[in-house]
Amino acid sequence: IRCIGVSNRDFVEGMSGGTWVDVVLEHGGCVTVMAQDKPTVDIELVTTTVSNMAEVRSYCYEASISDMASDSRCPTQGEAYLDKQSDTQYVCKRTLVDRGWGNGCGLFGKGSLVTCAKFTCSKKMTGKSIQPENLEYRIMLSVHGSQHSGMIVNDTGYETDENRAKVEVTPNSPRAEATLGGFGSLGLDCEPRTGLDFSDLYYLTMNNKHWLVHKEWFHDIPLPWHAGADTGTPHWNNKEALVEFKDAHAKRQTVVVLGSQEGAVHTALAGALEAEMDGAKGKLFSGHLKCRLKMDKLRLKGVSYSLCTAAFTFTKVPAETLHGTVTVEVQYAGTDGPCKIPVQMAVDMQTLTPVGRLITANPVITESTENSKMMLELDPPFGDSYIVIGVGDKKITHHWHRSGSTIGKAFEATVRGAKRMAVLGDTAWDFGSVGGVFNSLGKGIHQIFGAAFKSLFGGMSWFSQILIGTLLVWLGLNTKNGSISLTCLALGGVMIFLSTAVSA
């Protein structure tokens, strides 16, 4: 259960009878995928790494000078000259100064003066180019299975845990398959586009800190620079940016070097996208990844198990997540596992009318040892309800109150669905055939309105939902006002479609 501690969480529900669903994975976010007769899966884009970055340009932001020398000439005696002028490691300046009897010249006039100092770069920052084909995306998957609280967001041991898996995709191999043991396998067909235009970005490294910066900004930095990788004795261009020549006297000129420019660069980098280094690879934390999940090989585990009949206890007080759902960790005293956990939410304890829904599909106890633990997640209705676990006299209950409203949740879900469709863009549509167009249209309606429909009408039977949709269509056909007619027709059509397409 990876997503319960992530604030940016998206719930995606598969269409009834569908074998695939489109998701948008982004750094700092987590996606929970639910479908009829399929286990619930949490998917998170953990890291995006980039390798084989080529150094484009380096800037010196802290330097020192040494070996200063000057040469001067009297008027009419030609130009002052130093051998160091031809050495690229030196920074030199030529000027004219007033000369006369007082400073060793027989004539009054302008004399030539040249001053040089050896330039040494102490600290530099480097910009590297990123090729999209060198990106690698690491995705962690977790099935809502027989897990306890100690396994949440624990990325170790996934090789031997059938509840978890790690997959890596690249532009050259965008397809992967996550093996989930008894739950089958989940196929991923990803489109490795981060949403960032790397043709316009460089990877900047300064003092063990890293950013993504725009090329134009990078090339306009007014500091000494050299092109390409460091060859040991780089040729620094624009050395004068960190060196200041003071007022010249008759035979000498003082040279000083400016202080470190790291603070000024940090100020200019305010708002830039931060990154990290992992050995020789860069780690990015921006952008998104679009994936199509193929769920035809994914299956529920323990459908044929019998119900657990022994007593359950709450190991922890049920807690609310950031998303309005409830996490419950229970301990089973029996030894008759594997068995299914009898769990439901009810409005009252007399009729036990089921409300809400299970995020953890078909929760089971897989071990036959005593005191096995299991964590599950529920989506309670707004208002008061009861969490009921167990059967008969051994069942345990917990009162729950959820604040908020169904309308607010439906609106929030619609906005999130619209954002998801905007990110998917043209990849969500198939114009290759008439059937493809209608299929894409259905998927689009489901992406945007599916979660809201589930919130508003999830407790009704599909037949009642179709009746309401048919009534809206009838009202649309018999209303003389054009805008009201079109609105009723659209709402009725969407409702009829979703009542037959969205899983219960």
Rank of each mutant, 00 (worst) to 15 (best):
R2Q: 09
C3G: 04
C3Y: 13
I4A: 06
V6W: 08
S7F: 01
R9V: 06
G14T: 04
G17E: 03
T19L: 01
W20S: 03
D22V: 03
V23P: 01
L25T: 03
T32S: 06
A35K: 04
Q36F: 10
K38I: 06
V41L: 14
V41Y: 08
D42G: 09
D42A: 01
D42P: 00
E44K: 11
L45T: 06
T49F: 01
T49E: 01
S51T: 15
N52R: 01
M53K: 03
A54W: 09
Y59W: 10
Y61K: 06
A63L: 04
S66M: 04
D67W: 12
D67K: 06
S72N: 13
R73M: 13
G78L: 01
K84M: 13
S86F: 02
S86R: 15
S86I: 15
T88I: 14
Q89L: 13
Q89C: 12
Y90T: 09
K93L: 01
K93Y: 07
V97N: 10
D98C: 07
G102S: 08
G104D: 12
G104P: 03
C105N: 06
S112I: 01
L113N: 02
V114L: 15
V114F: 08
V114C: 04
T115A: 10
T120G: 15
T120Q: 04
K123D: 05
K124F: 01
T126V: 14
T126L: 12
K128Y: 05
K128P: 00
S129G: 07
S129E: 11
I130V: 14
Q131E: 13
Y137F: 15
R138K: 12
I139T: 07
M140R: 04
M140K: 02
L141R: 02
S142G: 15
V143M: 13
H148F: 14
S149L: 11
V153C: 05
V153D: 13
E159C: 01
T160K: 14
E162K: 10
N163Y: 12
A165D: 10
V167F: 14
T170Q: 06
T170D: 06
P171C: 06
S173D: 07
E177Q: 11
A178Q: 04
T179G: 01
G181D: 08
G181R: 05
F183T: 05
G187K: 11
G187D: 08
G195M: 09
G195D: 14
S199A: 15
T205W: 05
M206D: 07
N207K: 12
N208M: 08
N208T: 15
H210W: 12
W211Q: 09
W211R: 10
L212F: 05
L212C: 08
E216K: 13
W217L: 01
W217V: 04
H219A: 12
H219I: 12
I221T: 13
L223E: 10
P224R: 03
A229N: 02
D230C: 00
T233Y: 14
H235M: 15
N238C: 11
N238T: 03
K239E: 12
K239A: 05
E240R: 00
A241N: 10
L242T: 02
V243W: 08
V243Y: 04
E244C: 01
F245G: 01
K246V: 02
D247A: 15
Q253H: 03
S260W: 08
E262W: 12
E262S: 06
H266G: 13
A270I: 12
G271T: 10
E274D: 14
E274N: 06
M277S: 12
G279K: 12
G279H: 07
G279F: 06
G282N: 03
S286P: 11
S286G: 14
H288V: 05
L293D: 04
M295V: 11
R299C: 05
R299M: 09
K301M: 15
G302V: 06
G302D: 12
S304H: 08
L307D: 00
L307A: 14
L307F: 15
C308R: 08
A311M: 12
T313C: 14
T313K: 01
P318I: 06
L322N: 06
E329H: 12
Q331S: 14
Y332I: 04
G334A: 01
T335I: 13
D336P: 13
P338W: 10
K340I: 06
I341V: 14
P342Q: 13
V343I: 15
Q344R: 09
A346D: 01
A346K: 05
D348P: 00
M349H: 15
Q350I: 15
T351C: 00
V355L: 13
V355F: 00
L358P: 12
T360I: 12
P363A: 14
P363E: 06
P363N: 07
P363H: 00
P363T: 01
T366S: 13
S368P: 14
T369I: 15
T369L: 09
K373N: 14
M374Q: 03
M374A: 14
L376V: 15
E377I: 04
D379A: 04
F382H: 08
F382A: 04
G383F: 06
G383N: 10
D384Y: 10
G392Y: 08
D393G: 09
D393L: 00
D393Q: 01
K395Y: 02
I396E: 01
T397R: 06
H398T: 12
W400A: 07
R402C: 11
R402T: 08
T406K: 08
G408D: 07
K409E: 09
A410G: 01
T414C: 10
V415Q: 11
R416S: 09
G417M: 12
A422F: 00
V423I: 15
D426N: 15
T427V: 14
T427H: 02
A428D: 08
F431L: 14
G432Q: 09
G432I: 00
S433I: 02
N439Y: 15
S440K: 04
H446Q: 10
F449W: 13
F457K: 12
G459C: 05
S461C: 09
L467A: 12
I468Q: 04
T470M: 13
L471S: 12
L471E: 12
W474F: 12
W474N: 04
L477R: 01
L477W: 07
T479R: 00
K480Y: 13
N481H: 12
I484M: 13
I484E: 11
C488N: 01
L489Q: 10
V494W: 12
L498D: 12
S499H: 10
T500E: 04
